[in-house]
Simulated scan of single mutants.
Amino acid sequence: MADDLVVRASGLCKYFGDRLVVDGVDLEVPQGRIYGVLGPNGAGKTTTLRMLLGILEPDRGSRTIFGHANPRAVGDRIGYLPEERGLYPAMKCREAIAFMGALRGLDWKEGRARAGDLLEAAGLGHAVDDKIRKLSKGMAQLVQLLGSIVHRPDLIVLDEPFSGLDPVNQERLEALIRAEQERGATIVFSTHVMAHAERLCDRLAIIAGGRRRFEGTVDDARAKLPMHALYTPRVAGNGLAALLPADAVPAGDGFRFLLPADGIEPVLERVMKGGHGIAGLSIERPSLHDAFVRIVGRDNMGDVE
């Protein structure tokens, strides 16, 4: 797996004055994956991404991108959407995207052609010749994203890309991220919204208080908590509770309890033999929100949605 890592960071630390804002963060991003950096605002996500890209130098630790210790040496292979948005308001959409591609070495004519295709695919074909100042905030944000991928980078780094977008443009952005992965790109994005991480990420890191608290898949995070069973009998009555696990508690017309280590089958066998039957049964998996609370503590939730 080490040979397939696009991004590797080890022990990244960064001080602003005497304040330690990133404290020993390790990250490993496999090629071709969507990797999320999840945490509240102020957790150190932006500073971590900027150190990965060489915008900031770490005070301690190391990082490599495509095996290079100097990220700027492979800058043309990277697309970056910063947290602070900024486009020239008098530029037309097509020219703004082509201009950003030219900064990464893309031919101007080719950039304009690709810009038109990207705008059309993103549902913004009608705005190809509109000036940036005429666009809504969400549309302008999508145009800036298109400008960061027009040169077809191998690594795309997006800092809070969903911030401020309405649901329609959020869906467009998710579709764009998946399309870039299908093209073969590796995507790293930061977010404080659970739903985006849960839907998109192959792997994720959870950062709180400047420290990495977890790294793995969404299922790995959920596995930090046990699953629950919700059982509804067909026939209730005395003696049912004694057939259920000791932690069973009433829930609606049935009972809720931790899924036993030996599975649900022995419980079902007992209630069937006891004549109570099964009117309903569901297994509840922990959510990413539940896992986040377990991993970082409720006091560190901040503005995570």
Rank of each mutant, 00 (worst) to 15 (best):
I206T: 03
R222N: 00
F214I: 09
T217I: 11
A185C: 11
L155W: 10
G138T: 02
V188K: 12
C201W: 03
L230V: 15
S148Q: 03
H228W: 13
D219T: 06
G184Y: 14
H196S: 09
M227R: 15
R211L: 10
A185N: 10
R133F: 14
F189G: 06
V157R: 10
D154K: 10
A221M: 01
H151Y: 08
I149A: 13
E160S: 03
I156H: 10
L145I: 02
D166H: 05
E174R: 15
I206S: 00
P233N: 05
F189T: 14
L165R: 04
R212V: 04
A179W: 09
C201R: 12
G209H: 01
L142K: 12
H192W: 06
Q144L: 05
A179Q: 14
A205L: 04
V157L: 00
G164S: 00
T232V: 15
A175Y: 08
V218G: 09
A223I: 03
K134G: 09
T232N: 01
K137T: 11
A185F: 07
R183Q: 09
S136C: 11
A221P: 08
D219E: 15
L225K: 12
L165D: 07
D154E: 14
E198I: 10
D202P: 13
V218K: 13
A223N: 12
P167K: 13
S148E: 09
R211C: 09
V150R: 03
G147P: 05
P226A: 13
E174W: 04
P226W: 09
M227H: 14
Q144C: 06
K134I: 02
R152Y: 07
P153M: 10
M139G: 01
L135T: 11
D159W: 01
T232M: 04
C201L: 05
R178T: 06
P161Q: 02
F162G: 05
P153F: 11
T217Y: 07
D166T: 09
S163T: 07
A175H: 13
P161N: 00
P233K: 06
R183G: 02
G138H: 04
Q170C: 15
D220I: 06
Q144P: 08
R152T: 08
R199I: 10
I206A: 03
S163Q: 11
M194V: 15
E215W: 04
Q144F: 12
I206F: 06
L204T: 06
V150A: 02
